[in-house]
Structure formats: C-alpha cells, structure tokens
Simulated assay, not measured.
Amino acid sequence: MKNVILTLIFLGIAIFPGIAQKSKKGFPAEIGMVSYTYRHSFQKDVAKTLDTIKTLGITDMEFSNLFGKTAQELRKLLDERNMKCSSFGVGYDDLVNKTGEVASNAKTLGASYVRVAWIPHKAPFTLEVAKKAVEDFNRAGKILKEEHGLTFCYHNHGYEFQPYEKGTFFDYMVAQTDPKYVNFEMDILWVFHPGQDPAKLLNKYGKRFKLMHMKDLRKGVTGDFSGQTPVENDVALGTGQLDLPAILKAALKAGVEHYYIEDESPSVSSQVPQSITYLKNLSL
C-alpha cells in the first residue's frame, strides 16, 4: 500500500509539476534606494536619514547628490552603517566637463556606476540633441571605463520615446552608443508615461540595462513626452498603472544588476514601506 501511495505521488508531481513547485514569494534581488526619494530629509540630516533607510532593511544606495558632504564624509557615514553606494548620479554638464572629478567622487563612494538622468534641451527633443548626447556619452563613458573602471548609464526620462524613423529617439541612442562604454538605467515610470512597454523594452535591449528605478504611476494619469508629471502621481508600488510582475520578470531575465525604489511624492513615509512590503510579497 505504501509503495502504491508513493507511486501516485510521484506520478502527480510528474504530471502536475505545479503541485510541487509553487512560485517563490518575494522579489529575489536586493532592493535599493535612490537618495532623491529622501531628498528633503537628506538636506536636513544625512546621518539620521541613512538610519531611517537602514531601518527599512535597505543598504544599497544610489546617490544623486552629496547633500553638502564631501564624498569621503558620505562614504564614512555609509561604512559606519554597513551600507553601500553602488551608483552615483551626476548632472550632464559635470559628466561632460568634470569627468575626472565625477570619477573620483564615484570611486570614493564605492560606486561602480555613474549615471545621468537628464539631457538639457528645449522641447521638443530633437535629433540634433540626441546626436550631441550620443557623442558626449561615448566620450565620457570611454574615459570612465578605461581610466577609472566605472560604467556609465543614461537614465531615460520620457522625451526620448518620441517617434524617429521606424522607432524612437531612444532606439537611435541605443544603436549609436558603444555598449562597451554606455549602458542604461531604466526608469520604468518614464518608459510607461510616454506610452512604451517597459517589459518589451527590457526584452528588446537585454543587458544594455544595468540599473532600474522602480516606481508606479497613479491610475488615471495620461502620459506624454514632457518628462514631467506632478510628484503626487508617484504612488506605492503595486497601486498604480504599471504591470510590475511582468516588468520585474523581464528585468531579472535581462540581468539588471541594481534595483532602486524611487518615490518623488510627499508621502514617502507611508508609501516606501508599502512598496517594500509589495516587493517582499511579490510572486514571480
């Protein structure tokens, strides 16, 4: 009788593997944080803000501002808390004109990536602006990689998805930048807002995406190519319009290395814990 039961169990597993293999609960990658989420708090007290973020279980940071500290001072505060800075965000002008200084600060912080999140332009975004950005990114990215061992990433912001030829300006930028020196950070809201599908874009360009900003857009909001929306339209993950399970599955498959929560809203104290809970309970 015992052998019969075991045989039936074995046959059940073989025929219906879902019985034995349930979806693993919880997003499997480390959850990081963009400093911009806590920008107002960081401006008042960097140390206390780091304590708050660590209390949430987050130790991986992307800094876009030194908040009045030197890179050395900020690194000390991180080290004291066993936290790290994996990506350092800078302005376009600093990337182009102060590449060495940017690299020095990034390496002092312990970052592996340097990121730019906005290309200066007057709307609409044009081919001329895209060409200049490609030139600047290739040049600066080569310096960062060959002279400093750092990887440059450009963070999309929505305006790049205006139509161009058979695709978009974003497609043009991916095609024209050297993958040895230029990669990308996907801000999923700023892919969705101008009408694109983040999961499809991840499937299309795979490993060109090294970093990700995880955020969600309030239901009912209609997007455009402006790269702007009121900060109140940032909502807790899983409560907005984006298909986060599909996006994050595609990101894991593409090999995205760092995932940062970014919430620009004034409701960070309630929304960030809600977003973390959502990710911890997500089944992929």
Rank of each mutant, 00 (worst) to 15 (best):
M1S: 14
T239R: 05
K44F: 02
T37W: 06
K204C: 03
M186L: 11
N82K: 15
V102L: 10
K69Y: 10
D171S: 03
L109P: 09
T239C: 10
F152W: 04
N156M: 04
P124R: 10
T52W: 00
T108C: 09
I247S: 02
T222H: 13
H40T: 07
V4K: 09
P266C: 08
D136E: 14
I276S: 04
I276R: 02
G220V: 10
V129T: 14
L74D: 09
G32M: 05
F125S: 11
N233C: 13
T126A: 12
I19D: 01
R39E: 08
R115P: 01
Y172W: 09
K44Y: 00
N156F: 03
N82W: 03
Y159Q: 05
L6Q: 12
I5A: 13
P273I: 08
N3W: 10
K131E: 15
Q43M: 08
F169I: 00
A254Y: 05
R75F: 01
Y113W: 13
R39A: 08
V191P: 05
R81M: 04
D224N: 15
N281Y: 00
I15Q: 08
L6E: 11
Y260F: 14
V235I: 12
A117Y: 06
K24R: 11
V272H: 02
A251D: 08
F169S: 02
S270A: 11
T7C: 07
Q162T: 05
A199K: 07
I247P: 00
Y92A: 11
T7G: 03
N156E: 07
D263P: 04
Y164W: 14
Y172K: 02
G158D: 07
K200Q: 13
F137A: 06
L74S: 06
D234E: 05
L242F: 07
V268C: 09
I53V: 15
E135R: 13
C85A: 15
V221C: 06
M61H: 12
G18L: 10
V114R: 08
L150D: 08
Y260D: 04
K54L: 03
F137M: 10
K249C: 01
P194R: 08
V96T: 11
K22T: 09
V256Y: 03
R39I: 06
S86C: 04
K44C: 00
V96P: 08
T229K: 12
Y260Q: 02
L95K: 09
N281P: 02
T277Q: 13
K107Y: 07
N97W: 07
Q21V: 11
Y154E: 03
I119Q: 08
V46C: 01
Y181R: 03
E80K: 09
S86V: 13
A250G: 10
G206I: 06
Q241P: 03
Q72A: 15
V96H: 09
R81K: 14
K249F: 04
K122Y: 08
S112A: 14
T108F: 02
D197F: 01
I31N: 00
E264D: 15
Q241E: 15
L78S: 07
D136A: 12
E73I: 02
K132G: 02
K219I: 13
E135F: 12
V268S: 05
